[in-house]
Design a binder for these strands. Structure first.
Lengths: 196, 196
DNA sequence: CTCAGTTTTCAGACATTCCTGAAAGTAGAG
DNA sequence: CTCTACTTTCAGGAATGTCTGAAAACTGAG
């Protein structure tokens, strides 16, 4: 691996992580190299830095492109393809989440919905359905939340995340100010905002 | 596979998902069977329902236990071990997130910190560090947010998630309330949110 | 202690995934 | 059209991961 030690350490770790998150080691390493690269790189740069075969790089880049995780950028006067990752790390995370949602969450939701429509044939299936319903509701809650949050500008998002659960206290303030009767959906939390 | 069709469909899908999320298919299937089971099951129940070898079940359960994802529950008058998943799906998610954090996020954070402490040997390493810094900050932001959120009671959590980005609007309300001149004797959050 | 019922371990068969070199494909320049 | 520089595809060997049966280890009862 033809990289300065600091870079190599990162690339190796990132490859390892990749393999725990459903992409193979090499793909993770390719991404890592692109992520920390100063400029756009071509396939042969990756061959050189990672010490893997040209065809492996080609397959890896193809996979990363299918995830929308790398961008192909033309370089004037050069016929080769050059690749980069976005500068904005928040946009990277958004892409990653959206792709995983599309590939894993959405199919899971439709499977769950389908199974929940079926008429249970016995007690065992009936009980299974009640569990699947819980799971379905939870995933819907999380994805709806994310879909909503995703639209925020990065600055607002950071502000929101920094607050963490303090938001819950603001909720209480809100409750007191507007004295909204009842909660949303499921189950109203203890009717009066008890707090001192 | 000795399961009613509805259950089998779920178990197969869940196994498939597991294999995309870093646990092998069988482990995912074992978990799925336990998740929808009406009662605690012993290893042989799993052998029967999944049609896999006893030793495979043993290894799978061992792995699930190392993730704290299944509980071993004694059954009176039976020497065998019986396993369940928690009834509360929110606690399941909390466990899952905590375990992944421990195994993947935390080591990544320490690697990043370590690399950021080094003195860059050249421009390439220096640029890499600035990228790693971005990544480190983002992960810290997310984990701090989660650590905070995790402590909320489930009902409050649901309430919060249901609001989604509407919270951002409440933030604006808050900004207006606390921005009132003369009204800042109280506990304004440390940083004054600028950048409207 | 022994025994029977149970769980765990582990070598190696089996299966899947990954990686490579060779060959085929593609596209701009001349 | 041909040449050249580059990219992609793909068969099959290498590496890794998974699963099993047999044997060992454990554990409570007698």
């Amino acid at each position: 691996m033809n990289l300065p030690p600091l870079c190599e350490a990162f690339v190796l770790h990132f490859g390892e992580m990749g393999s725990r998150w459903g992409v193979n080691r090499t793909v993770g390493q390719i991404y890592a190299v692109l992520f920390i690269a100063e400029t756009a790189l071509c396939a042969d740069d990756l061959v050189d830095r990672l010490g893997i075969s040209r065809s492996n790089v080609s397959m890896g880049l193809k996979e990363l492109q299918s995830w929308n995780l790398v961008r192909q950028r033309p370089v004037a006067g050069d016929r080769r393809d050059f690749f980069t990752t976005p500068d904005d790390i928040y946009s990277i995370v958004r892409t990653l989440v959206n792709e995983r949602k599309k590939r894993e969450i959405d199919p899971t939701l439709s499977m769950l919905r389908e199974l929940l429509m079926q008429t249970p044939a016995n007690a065992q299936e009936e009980h299974a359905q009640s569990r699947l319903k819980d799971m379905h509701e939870l995933i819907e809650l999380l994805t709806a939340w994310y879909a909503d949050i995703e639209k925020l500008e990065t600055d607002r998002l950071i502000q929101l995340l920094s607050l963490g659960s303090k938001v819950a206290r603001i909720l209480e303030v809100k409750d007191r100010i507007f004295a909204l009767p009842g909660g949303k959906g499921r189950q109203t939390p203890s009717s009066t905002p008890n707090r001192g």
